[in-house]
Design a protein around this nucleic acid. Sequence first.
DNA 1: GGCATAAAAGATATAAAACTCTTTTGTTAT
DNA 2: ATAACAAAAGAGTTTTATATCTTTTATGCC
Lengths: 145, 145
Amino acid sequence: MGVFSKTCEYAMRAVFFIAHKTAPGGRVGIKEIANGIDSPEHFLAKILQDLSRRGIVRSAKGPNGGFYLDESALKRPLSDIVEAVDGKGIFLGCGLGIKQCSEINPCPLHHEFKAIRNQIHHMMYKTTIGEFNEDLDLGITALKK
Amino acid sequence: MGVFSKTCEYAMRAVFFIAHKTAPGGRVGIKEIANGIDSPEHFLAKILQDLSRRGIVRSAKGPNGGFYLDESALKRPLSDIVEAVDGKGIFLGCGLGIKQCSEINPCPLHHEFKAIRNQIHHMMYKTTIGEFNEDLDLGITALKK
DNA sequence: GGCATAAAAGATATAAAACTCTTTTGTTAT
DNA sequence: ATAACAAAAGAGTTTTATATCTTTTATGCC
Ligand code: FES
Ligand code: FES
């Protein structure tokens, strides 16, 4: 696996996709999202259900239903999604897996690892869900392949 | 999970432990290692078997047997262990999980993620297996709790 | 040789993550 | 009201990661 779980990767890509597709208003259905980010449809549905319960995305059933975001969601940091799905472990845990990362009982990598871990956190925290809409529009960045 | 798999975490801690314990020569048994890094004994045995097959650690059966390292191993980069256990995915894969991380078809996080990923790689590559023996001796750093 | 030691190898077991399928519930439009 | 639509919920299955247990093989010592 990479740095994040597959579930988390799908979650992030899906949210970016929803942000992009519904920027002009409207909703986007699970099939289109799954297709747009190249993920298994039913599995993604589960993930989005969860994000919906946690208030990160919104959803509507029935005709013209689908997923969308409210205004405030676009300004949320990406770290909210990571924490919702994978927990805070990645931002706080020891690189060598000892029970408790601390200054008092540090592992050999502590100093250097902490710096990198904080950078990951910082990157995810300053990145907002909505900030890539333009790039996606222009095709400068992509969410699959 | 953290950045690395549990298997990989155990592997790194075990190798540091072996490096430390056998610095003066001799070998160290699986029980002592498992105890010293707080890991399940039989599971760790599997991991070390694997590292042994890959030539990262050495082992000897019978009385006074156990695990040890040859000279050159102490100078190996930690990244060798990570690659042996988790593969290169963590050093090369896309942060959002798209099939292929590339400059041509980058995901929204590509630029920033790549920088961090390279730092992880660099940290693991410049860190050698033997370089923490002194700190461990002095109790400045620890491999459990 | 015979015994003790200790890792290697093999076979399972358990749990968690990843993925699939079916049914239910709520919505909209006719 | 009913038919079509689309997500929610529930109940699986499959795969991968993690962990345990048992048997075999190699080594050193007497
Ligand atoms: S103790 Fe290992 S990273 Fe802090
Ligand atoms: S394409 Fe996502 S990190 Fe390079």
